[in-house]
Design a protein around this nucleic acid. Structure first.
Lengths: 205, 205
DNA sequence: ACCTGAACACCGTTCAAGT
DNA sequence: ACCTGAACACCGTTCAAGT
């Protein structure tokens, strides 16, 4: 069932060149700033042409993220539509949380984070190192949201904000894993993850 | 003990006018973009003069944040029904967040928390001390939720879970205040607080 | 429909020049 | 030391004009 006519395929060609250029730039330097002009120049098209396919920078960025993580096709299970979207997203978020560890391991992990990024004078080098880490996590979460948006499980347009929100929840959970806890932390952690995910999936903003 | 000379007091005068102008702008519209030119114009100084006191936009934003959080420390206002429930709850949560501080202050606060509760062997004494703190915060948040439940702004029955969720978000935000941040933290912090509060107020669980 | 590039209204930072 | 405003090199978006 070929929905696209010939002209649209030609258009898809330059659309893809734009996405490929942007993806290549991120591949070379994950902290690169994707401006209209740099991406357009790299793709060999005009800024106006880029704007024709991606009316705002946000839409360009979201599309690039989706492309990158589609090609990486990891086993995170985000694509498995036999599972409800909320369960898939929660499982993915657990993968971000996993390196935080539990118990003594969690305290050691927090200790390293503290000694590396909080205790020392925040030089540009220290800042850049942390921000690269943070952006990587943010990108992962945004890529999952982009995929759920593509399936229609999520309204478009706020994924950066949503990802920031989820990252904050994960930071809170990671911190609480290092701090003393009342009773089984797993239960309240699961409840909190589902509350955050349901918020993102259901609430209008 | 007057450490400042006359000249420095004059300088502090225009420095304060800049901070006041920026704080006023945020007061009128919390999502406003504080650019060099708009803030300088509002304060009635040149961009060069602003740059003399705040060499980068980051330093300006940090200073403004500190001023705002100092002045917003007031009573909780949870009962003031002339304000929408979500705004009241966000303001109350900000009060829990306030002691986390900003900038260097935030890093020091985290340092103390780390040395007190994470670094040492978790004896029963250490655990109890932290859990008391944690429960106090949880109790405050739950009391606010109880009031909103009484007004009918919130469905009954899940307030402990909801409070735990909000505490986790606050822990995440406090952690992010100590870590290096990308841009103005105030805006994404506000967005995250409102997302969390809207989640609690609107979403069915 | 697709594509161009100029134009517009911003932005943060630098700096010679004044007081 | 404090202050000015122009200048520089960016940014995202809009749009008349071409094919």
């Amino acid at each position: 069932m070929p929905r696209q006519r010939k002209v649209e395929q030609r258009a898809a060609g330059t659309r893809d060149r734009i996405l490929a250029a942007a993806a290549a730039m991120i591949g070379e330097d994950p902290s690169v700033n994707l401006s209209v002009r740099t991406v357009a120049a790299r793709a060999g098209v005009s800024t106006g042409s880029l704007r024709h396919f991606f009316p705002t920078q946000r839409e360009l960025r979201d599309a690039v993220l989706a492309v990158i993580y589609d090609h990486v096709v990891s086993e995170d299970g985000i694509h498995d539509r036999s599972v409800p979207a909320r369960d898939r997203l929660v499982n993915c978020l657990r993968q971000v949380l996993a390196p935080a560890g539990v118990g003594e391991q969690a305290r050691e992990a927090w200790g390293k984070l503290f000694e590396t990024f909080i205790a020392p004078e925040p030089t540009d080098e220290v800042r850049a190192a942390y921000l690269a880490m943070d952006r990587e996590g943010q990108r992962r979460v945004e890529s999952w949201l982009a995929i759920l948006t593509q399936e229609g499980a999520l309204a478009a347009g706020e994924n950066t904000r949503r990802a920031r929100f989820l990252m904050t929840v994960l930071n809170g959970l990671a911190t609480e894993r290092a701090l003393p806890a009342e009773k089984s932390i797993l239960r309240s952690e699961t409840e909190t993850l589902y509350m955050a995910v349901d918020c993102v999936l259901n609430c209008r903003t």
